[in-house]
Computed example of a mutant assay.
Amino acid sequence: MGEARKVRGAGTRLHQGIRTGLDALRNPGSPLSVLIAEDDQVTSRTMGLMIAWEFPHLTVDTVDNGERGVELFRQRLPDIVIADLDLPGKDGLQMAAEIKTLKKETPLIVVTGCSDRTQLARLCEIGVNHCILKPYKVQELFAAIESCIAQLTKETDVRSYTLF
């Protein structure tokens, strides 16, 4: 419990080190990274394996609580964060807010069983990119990840024009 786990799917290779952010986007072949914060081990492992299988170029790390999520985010600066809203200790809402404070442009996907309008409005205020309601279809999650990857790629393209 409380320990980060690296997930590898069938057909993926273990990446030596993690290059993230603009470095990963500018260097073909370097992995983008995803951080999953989910307290249910079965859900976390399943989600990580499905993402690794569908997106073999992504490095996937998982944590089981919000505090560890923020800690690992600070250490590794993952490109995309996926968080369950109902996490022990620091919940997904608090975790998302803190991550957006640390690195505003980080795409965030929140998965929740809660459909409370006040809480959903708060997610929008924080800047969460996608909110997926449980139960969800895996295609919804994949579409959200693809959208985040497109956003990261677009931001890199815009920055490269201003850099040169």
Rank of each mutant, 00 (worst) to 15 (best):
G2C: 03
K6Q: 12
K6H: 13
K6L: 15
V7W: 09
V7L: 14
V7M: 13
G9Y: 01
G11E: 07
T12A: 03
L14E: 15
H15V: 15
G17P: 07
I18M: 12
I18H: 08
R19S: 07
T20D: 06
G21P: 05
G21W: 10
D23P: 08
D23A: 11
D23H: 09
A24V: 04
L25T: 01
N27G: 12
P28T: 09
P28N: 06
G29K: 07
L32A: 03
L32F: 07
L32Y: 05
S33C: 08
S33V: 01
S33W: 00
E38R: 10
D39C: 06
D40L: 11
D40R: 12
D40M: 13
T46M: 14
T46S: 15
M47D: 07
G48K: 15
L49A: 14
L49M: 13
L49I: 14
M50P: 07
I51T: 01
I51N: 01
E54G: 00
F55Y: 02
H57V: 02
D61W: 11
R74Y: 13
Q75D: 06
R76P: 04
R76A: 09
L77W: 05
P78L: 02
D79W: 00
D79V: 00
D79C: 00
I80A: 01
A83M: 05
L85T: 07
L87K: 01
L87Q: 03
P88S: 05
K90Y: 02
G92Q: 04
G92C: 06
L93T: 09
L93D: 06
Q94E: 10
A96L: 03
A96N: 04
A96W: 02
A97L: 05
A97N: 05
I99Y: 03
I99R: 03
K100S: 10
L102G: 03
K103T: 09
E105P: 00
P107M: 01
I109M: 04
I109Y: 02
V110G: 04
V110S: 09
C114Y: 10
R117W: 13
Q119F: 04
L120P: 02
L120Y: 00
L120Q: 01
L123H: 06
C124P: 08
E125W: 06
G127S: 08
G127E: 11
V128I: 04
N129D: 15
K134P: 04
K137W: 04
Q139L: 12
Q139A: 11
E140S: 03
E140R: 03
L141F: 06
L141A: 05
I145P: 01
I149K: 04
Q151V: 08
L152A: 06
T153D: 10
T156Q: 09
D157F: 02
V158E: 12
V158I: 14
R159Y: 10
